Computed example of a mutant assay.
Amino acid sequence: MLIHPCPCGYYNDPKNECSCRPYQVKKYLSKISGPLLDRIDMHIEVFPVEYKELAGKTINRSSEEIKRNVDKARKVQIRRYANETARYNSQLTPKLTKKYCKLGKSESQLLEKAFKKLRLSARSYNKIIKLSRTIADLDNSEDIELRHLSEAIQYRSLDKNFWNV
């Protein structure tokens, strides 16, 4: 789902100036409710790509390599949840999340800080933990580490950046 942050589409854009008044931005963003945003797993801010970046000789992973990594992570999840009702991290209930997505002390402290600072809901809290588990699976990591949790938190911060205007 693509959501522009304002009517002109340039609010918070580093290269283009937004022509909207603050009340217009607030009115525009109010069309999307917090509870709806809560149901979206990842919020990612994307800026236009410049031609030189597209035409450059950057080395990216191939689609085949990415697919292999995703398939491997899915197999890990299917094995992990073989005796459960869930097959994938996204299907975990809060009870299964506690069982399979244990956080260490530093990870728990980070999540607590994010929970308070971003004023996250219980739904967002659970989505962050499940997303962290998926990121760890993609990283071939048995445990959810700070870097996995940090990345997952970043994917949940846009609603607080835009919807607290």
Rank of each mutant, 00 (worst) to 15 (best):
A114D: 04
L92I: 12
L96F: 00
S141E: 15
K116I: 03
S132H: 10
S121L: 02
S121E: 08
K105Q: 09
S124R: 08
K117Q: 14
S132M: 03
T134F: 09
N140P: 06
A122I: 11
K127F: 03
N140F: 15
K130R: 15
Y125Q: 09
S108Q: 12
S141W: 12
R133K: 09
R133C: 08
I129L: 02
S90T: 14
C101V: 12
L110F: 01
A136K: 10
K102P: 05
Y125F: 14
C101G: 10
R123I: 05
S121R: 05
S124C: 13
R133Q: 07
I128F: 07
R123D: 05
K98Y: 06
K127G: 09
L118Q: 06
E112C: 05
F115P: 07
A122S: 11
R123N: 08
K98M: 02
E107S: 10
N140E: 15
R119K: 12
A122V: 15
T93G: 02
K102R: 14
P94H: 03
T97D: 00
S90C: 09
L96K: 05
K116M: 08
L131V: 13
N89M: 09
P94C: 04
G104C: 04
P94Y: 10
K117L: 08
S132Y: 07
R119T: 07
S106K: 14
L92V: 10
E112T: 10
K127Q: 10
S108Y: 04
K102T: 14
Y125M: 08
K113D: 01
E112Q: 14
R119F: 05
L131W: 04
L120H: 04
T97Y: 02
S108R: 11
K99Y: 07
I128S: 01
Y100N: 11
T97E: 06
L118N: 06
N140H: 13
K117R: 13
K113E: 04
L118I: 08
E112V: 04
L110K: 07
P94Q: 06
K105R: 10
L138K: 05
C101Q: 10
R87Y: 06
Q109K: 14
G104H: 12
A114Q: 12
E112D: 08
G104M: 11
I128C: 05
I129M: 01
K130E: 01
K99M: 12
K99Q: 09
N140Q: 13
I128K: 01
I128V: 14
K116C: 00
T134W: 09
Q109S: 11
L120K: 00
L118F: 14
S90V: 12
E107T: 03
I129T: 06
L96P: 01
Y100E: 01
R87L: 05
I128R: 01
D137T: 04
A122C: 05
E142N: 15
K127W: 06
K98Q: 05
L103R: 12
K130A: 01
E112W: 07
Y125L: 13
S108F: 02
G104E: 12
D137R: 10
L92F: 08
Y125W: 14
L131Y: 02
S132K: 03
N126Q: 11
E112L: 08
S121W: 02
Q91F: 13
G104R: 12
S121N: 03
L92M: 11
K105M: 10
L131K: 02
T93P: 03
L92W: 11
L110E: 08
S108N: 10
K95N: 02
L92A: 04
K99W: 10
C101N: 11
S90Q: 09
